[in-house]
Amino acid sequence: KWEEIAERLREEFNINPEEAREAVEKAGGNEEEARRIVKK
């Protein structure tokens, strides 16, 4: 599940997989929260 979210974030925000994974981890697997983290 987290991998899927990280993949979507990576494609959408054009970030590297590591950044995407970190955002999802910080968000506890919550996609909306992960998006907010990435946008900062």
Rank of each mutant, 00 (worst) to 15 (best):
K1Y: 12
K1M: 12
K1H: 10
K1D: 13
K1I: 10
K1G: 11
W2P: 05
W2E: 05
W2D: 04
W2R: 05
W2N: 06
W2V: 05
W2T: 06
W2H: 06
E3Y: 11
E3R: 14
E3W: 12
E3D: 11
E3A: 12
E3K: 13
E3N: 12
E3F: 13
E3Q: 13
E3I: 10
E3H: 14
E4M: 12
E4I: 13
E4H: 10
E4D: 11
E4P: 05
I5Y: 03
I5H: 01
I5E: 02
I5K: 02
I5C: 02
I5R: 02
I5D: 00
I5S: 02
A6M: 14
A6T: 07
A6R: 05
E7Y: 07
E7G: 09
E7F: 14
E7R: 14
R8D: 02
R8I: 06
R8G: 03
R8H: 05
L9Q: 00
L9C: 02
L9I: 10
L9S: 01
L9H: 00
L9P: 00
L9E: 00
L9V: 04
R10I: 13
R10N: 05
R10W: 11
R10Q: 10
R10E: 06
E11K: 15
E11T: 14
E11Y: 15
E11H: 14
E11C: 13
E11R: 15
E12W: 07
E12M: 08
E12F: 07
E12S: 05
E12T: 06
E12C: 06
E12R: 04
F13M: 07
F13A: 04
F13Q: 03
F13L: 07
F13N: 07
F13R: 02
F13T: 04
N14Q: 10
N14V: 05
N14I: 04
N14D: 07
N14P: 05
I15W: 01
I15E: 03
I15H: 02
I15K: 02
I15A: 04
I15R: 02
I15C: 09
I15V: 09
N16S: 15
N16Y: 06
N16V: 06
N16L: 12
N16W: 05
N16D: 14
N16Q: 11
P17F: 15
P17H: 13
P17R: 11
P17K: 14
P17E: 14
P17L: 14
P17Y: 15
P17S: 12
P17A: 15
P17N: 10
E18G: 08
E18K: 08
E18I: 12
E18V: 10
E19N: 06
E19K: 07
E19H: 08
E19P: 03
E19A: 13
E19F: 12
E19G: 04
E19L: 13
A20K: 00
A20P: 00
A20S: 07
A20L: 03
R21V: 08
R21T: 07
R21S: 08
R21W: 14
R21G: 04
R21C: 03
R21L: 12
R21Q: 09
R21D: 06
E22D: 13
E22F: 11
E22A: 08
E22W: 15
E22Q: 14
A23E: 01
A23P: 00
A23G: 02
A23Q: 02
A23C: 04
A23L: 07
A23N: 01
V24K: 00
V24A: 04
V24T: 05
V24Y: 04
V24S: 02
V24I: 12
V24G: 01
V24M: 06
V24R: 00
E25F: 14
E25S: 11
E25I: 15
E25R: 14
E25W: 14
K26Y: 08
K26R: 12
K26M: 13
K26C: 06
K26E: 09
A27G: 04
A27M: 03
A27I: 00
A27D: 00
A27N: 01
G28Y: 10
G28W: 11
G28A: 10
G28Q: 13
G29Q: 02
G29F: 05
G29T: 01
G29M: 03
N30Y: 05
N30E: 05
N30S: 09
N30L: 07
N30F: 06
E31N: 03
E31A: 08
E32H: 09
E32R: 10
E32Q: 11
E33S: 07
E33M: 11
E33Y: 05
E33K: 08
A34F: 00
A34R: 00
A34S: 04
A34H: 00
A34M: 02
A34P: 00
A34Q: 00
R35W: 06
R35D: 01
R35M: 05
R35L: 05
R35Y: 04
R35T: 04
R35A: 05
R36Y: 05
R36D: 08
R36I: 10
R36H: 08
R36P: 01
R36M: 11
R36W: 05
R36T: 09
R36V: 08
I37K: 04
I37H: 07
I37A: 08
I37M: 12
I37P: 00
I37E: 06
V38S: 03
V38E: 01
V38H: 02
V38N: 01
V38L: 15
V38W: 04
V38K: 01
V38F: 04
K39F: 11
K39M: 15
K39P: 03
K39E: 13
K39I: 15
K40Y: 14
K40S: 11
K40P: 07
K40G: 14
K40D: 12
K40I: 14
K40C: 12
K40H: 12
K40T: 13
